[in-house]
Simulated scan of single mutants.
Amino acid sequence: MTLSCKIHAAGDLRFEQQEDAALEPHQVEIQLGAAGICGSDLHYYLHGRAGAFQIREPLTPGHEASGVVVRSGRAAGALAPGVKVAINPSQACGSCAYCRQGRENLCTEMRFLGSASVFPHVQGMFRERFVVNERQLTAVETDISFGELAFAEPLAVALHAVNRCGPLLGKTVLVTGAGTIGCLIVKAVRLAGAARIIACDVADHPLQAAAAAGADTVVRSDASSAADLSSSADVCVEAAGNTGALATCVDACRRGGRIVQVGTLPAEGVHFPANAVMARELDYIGAFRFGVEFDWAVDYIVSRRIDVRPLLTAQLPLKDAAAAFQLAADKSRSTKVQLIGEAAMA
Rank of each mutant, 00 (worst) to 15 (best):
G11Y: 07
D12G: 05
L13W: 04
F15R: 02
Q17L: 15
Q18F: 08
A21T: 13
L23K: 13
E24M: 15
E24W: 11
E29C: 12
Q31Y: 04
Q31L: 13
Q31C: 12
G33R: 07
G36R: 04
I37N: 03
L46A: 11
R56V: 11
A65H: 03
S66E: 08
G82V: 09
K84D: 05
V85A: 09
N88S: 14
S95R: 15
S95P: 00
A97T: 10
A97H: 12
Y98W: 14
Q101A: 15
Q101F: 08
G102P: 05
L106Y: 13
Q123D: 08
Q123L: 10
F130T: 03
E134C: 14
R135V: 09
Q136N: 15
L137Q: 06
D143E: 14
E148G: 04
H160S: 09
L169A: 15
K171H: 11
V175Y: 00
T176M: 09
G179V: 03
C183T: 08
L184K: 05
V186L: 06
V186A: 06
V186K: 02
L191G: 05
A194R: 03
A199H: 04
C200S: 14
C200I: 03
Q208C: 09
A209M: 14
D216N: 14
T217I: 15
S221A: 15
S224P: 09
S224C: 11
C236A: 13
A239E: 03
A239N: 02
G241N: 04
A245F: 00
T248M: 03
C249K: 00
R254W: 00
R255M: 11
F272V: 13
N275S: 14
A276Y: 04
R280D: 00
E281G: 02
Y284T: 00
I285E: 02
A287P: 01
F288C: 09
F288A: 10
G291C: 11
V292T: 14
D295N: 15
D299A: 15
R309M: 13
L311F: 10
L312I: 13
T313P: 08
P317R: 06
L327V: 12
K331G: 04
T335I: 15
K336N: 07
G341K: 05
M345H: 10
